[in-house]
Each structure stands twice: as structure tokens, then as C-alpha cells.
Amino acid sequence: MIQYTLRRLGLMVVTLFGVSVAIFLLLRIVPGNIADILFDSAGLIDPAEKQQIIKDLGLDLPLVTQYTHWIVGLAHGDLGYSYVSEKPVLDEILPRIPITARLAGLALLFAICTGVPFGVISAVRQNTWLDYMLRLMSLAALSMPSFWLGLLVLMAFVNWLGLLPIYDKAPATWGAALLMYGVPAATVGLRSSALIMRLTRSSMLEVLRQDYVRTARSKGLSEPAVTFTHALRNAVLPVITVIGIETAFLFGGLIVTETVFNIPGVARFLVEAIRWRDYPMVQNLVMFIAIIVVTVNLIVDLAYMFVDPRIRLRT
């Protein structure tokens, strides 16, 4: 178990290294840098001035040197300065992290708390109208792009409730805070919820056919006891794995949702930074997101081991 965890930690480092190289190169492959954009937008055309900016920011150095500077800085906790605001990257990111973290956490919670129970209901009531309806709804949720869904939700709120779940730095009441975070979180988590529901359903149907479920019934257990103590435990195993993968997708959805709902989190900020070719900002934000995703996946794998003795006792 300890050996497994160490091996996984090693793998994490390798993955993060790969991510850092990839984002570093991708940013430089994309045409234009901060100097180009400043000049285009401001309409300046003095080439000497432009060269000076490039030199000041170290963008004329060889790529390897630039990369080393970044990573060495990162290792020392120095994330550099934003090209745009010229403030330390850390100061820019830190206040936004809790906002996105709350959104992502709520979205995941929403996805699990709706996806798993609905999946179980759908499986237990297989081929009834309830099952058909849940399946239809999940299919709809899966095929709806989150920007569109976000707009629909906003419109629905304005139209029917006459209010807008606007972001407020210090929400007055708990209810207001829940509305403010809950609505966007549900919007972004809906896709994962639908995926988890479908997976839970098929996994549950598979498990309900197993011999040990028949054994459980032959003991005289009630249907709920059979479903929850015996079947569901086995059925959630594949679902746990998917939760890790969904975390990564969640950030993609958050970029859109934070934009639509006008929430000042890191995801929307990332898009902004990319537009300005704000290299230190983008690189460090992507690393931050990568660390979260990789950590969640590690936790998920450890949770899997915890639930499944066949894996726990082998490693």
C-alpha cells in the first residue's frame, strides 16, 4: 500500500513535468506574444520600443533558458510577475482560487449526489417510465453544451424569478451564497451528473445479475438491503474512477460557466491571460489546475483501493 502510494507519487511528478513542458511549448507556438498584442492594440509602431519590451521580459532568450527560469522559480515559490498587471502572479491567483475551488467542489458534490441515486433508481426500476425519463434527461444533459445551458439558466432566472444570480463578493445571507455558487455549480456539474447517472445505472444492472446478489436475496435480506449493502458497493467502483476523470473536464466547463455567470474565478482569468499571452500567468495557472486534477485522481485511486479489498490486499 505504501509502496503503491509512492509509485503513484512518482508518476504524479512525471505527469506534472509533461504538463509543464506541454503548456510552455504550446504558448510559444501560438502566434504573437505580449509585445505584439500591446503594439497591435495601442497602435504603436516603434520597433525599437518593441524590442526593448521583449528583452525586458526575457522573451529573446533561448527556450530552454526561459523554461529553466520558470521551473527554478516555481521550485522556490517564485511564480514571477504578470505581464499585464505587473503584480506578482501569486497575488493575482490566490484570491481567485477559493472561488473556483468552491464552484468545482460544489459541482462535483452535485454531480455525485444526483448522479448516483438517480442511477440506482433507474437500474432498480429498469424499463419503467421512470427509467425512460431519467435516461432521456441524462441524454439531454450530456448533449447540452455548458455555455448554452448557462445562458438558458440565466434566462430562466431573469424570466421567471425576476432575479439574476449575480456574483457578490460578500453575500448577505446563506441563501444568497448558495444561490450564487449553487446555480453555476449545478450548471457545470450537470454533465458529470448525467455521466455518473448513466454509468451507475449500467454498473448497477451488471451487479444485480451477479450470483452474490442472488445469495444475498437467498439469505432473506430485504430489497433495500440487497441494493445498498450488497449491490451498490460493488456498482460504485467504476463510478469512482470516472469521478477522477470528470474533475479534469470540470475545469473546461468552469471556464465557460465563470464567463457566463461573470464569476471572478481562476478559470475565467485563465482565458483572459491567454488572450494577453501573459506567459507567467497562464503557465502557473495551468500548473495549478494540473496539480489539482492529478491530486484528485490520486485520492480517487486510494479511495478505490480502500473500497476494494482485492486491490488493497494485493498491493
Binding site: 450470483d211 452474490y212 442472488r214 445469495t215 444475498a216 458497493r233 460493488n234 476494494d308 482485492r310
Partner: peptide
């Protein structure tokens, strides 16, 4: 049952 390999719940 016939199949002792699958008749017991693997997680308990």
C-alpha cells in the same frame, strides 16, 4: 449455489 467463486460478495 454452484459457483463458490462468485456466490460471495467480494467486498465484504
Amino acid at each position: 449455489f454452484q459457483e463458490p467463486m462468485t456466490a460471495l460478495n467480494p467486498l465484504l
